[in-house]
């Protein structure tokens, strides 16, 4: 049943400004990290091909800007997403507290058919900072939140050191695959020529 065709997954990364969304993406796609902070303006798009369970996936990663003023990008950006990645900085409490808002905002904008089971992934980023001493969001706390939202998978990552980044994105593919809708048959109507003819001939014959 499962088709062997390539699958394209639209992945949206959301989170407060400065939590490391672009860095995670760059680490994942290019295995590069830069200490310099450059705000993403609007949105950025990257693609990455991965192989998972014998299937080829193309991740179409939509890296969005965290700043408020770009939130107007709206419905179209979120439409048809296969997975949503929520990122926070474990050293900034507010970024963790925002996760609920981001999640709700996404569900409103994208309005997926089954919001309860829409695949999210939560990443707690920057665990490398200050050897973990400046950390304010504990793993326990983050996991508890994830559990309360329907068992969202949680990963602690370091975009700088490349820690857990690969695993997190693999989980994204796995989740999307699980969520793959059943292939419905495509059966458009067929025109009944005989009936059309009757209807036509009963009309004005000019």
């Amino acid at each position: 049943m499962a088709s062997r065709r390539r699958m394209l997954l639209k992945v949206i990364i959301l989170g407060d400004s400065g939590v490391g969304k672009t860095s995670l993406m760059n680490q994942y796609v290019n295995r590069k990290f830069s200490n310099q902070y450059k705000a993403t303006i609007g949105a950025d798009f990257l693609t990455k091909e991965i192989q998972f369970e014998d299937r080829l996936f193309t991740l179409q990663i939509w890296d969005t800007a965290g700043q408020e003023r770009f939130q107007s990008l709206g419905v179209a950006f979120y439409r048809g997403a296969d997975c949503c990645v929520l990122v926070h900085d474990v050293n900034v409490m507010k970024s963790f507290e925002s996760l609920s808002n981001w999640r709700e905002e996404f569900l409103i904008q994208a309005s997926p058919s089954d919001p309860e089971n829409f695949p999210f992934v939560v990443l707690g980023n920057k665990i490398d900072v200050d050897g973990g001493n400046s950390r304010v969001v504990s793993e326990k706390k983050a996991k508890a939140w994830c559990a309360s939202k329907g068992n969202i998978p949680y990963f602690e990552t370091s975009a700088k050191e490349g820690f857990n980044v690969e695993a997190a994105f693999e989980c994204i593919a796995k989740n999307a695959l699980k969520n793959e809708p059943e292939e419905e048959m495509y059966i458009p109507d067929t025109i009944d020529v005989a009936r059309e003819r009757q209807q036509k001939s009963s009309g004005c014959e000019c």
Binding site: N30, I41, G42, A43, L46, T47, A65, F70
Partner: peptide, 16 residues
């Protein structure tokens, strides 16, 4: 931008 990644395909929107 110095990240001249060879495998990178990047398209930007916005005033970037």
């Amino acid at each position: 931008s110095r990240e001249s990644a060879s495998e990178m395909r990047r398209n930007s929107i916005g005033e970037s």
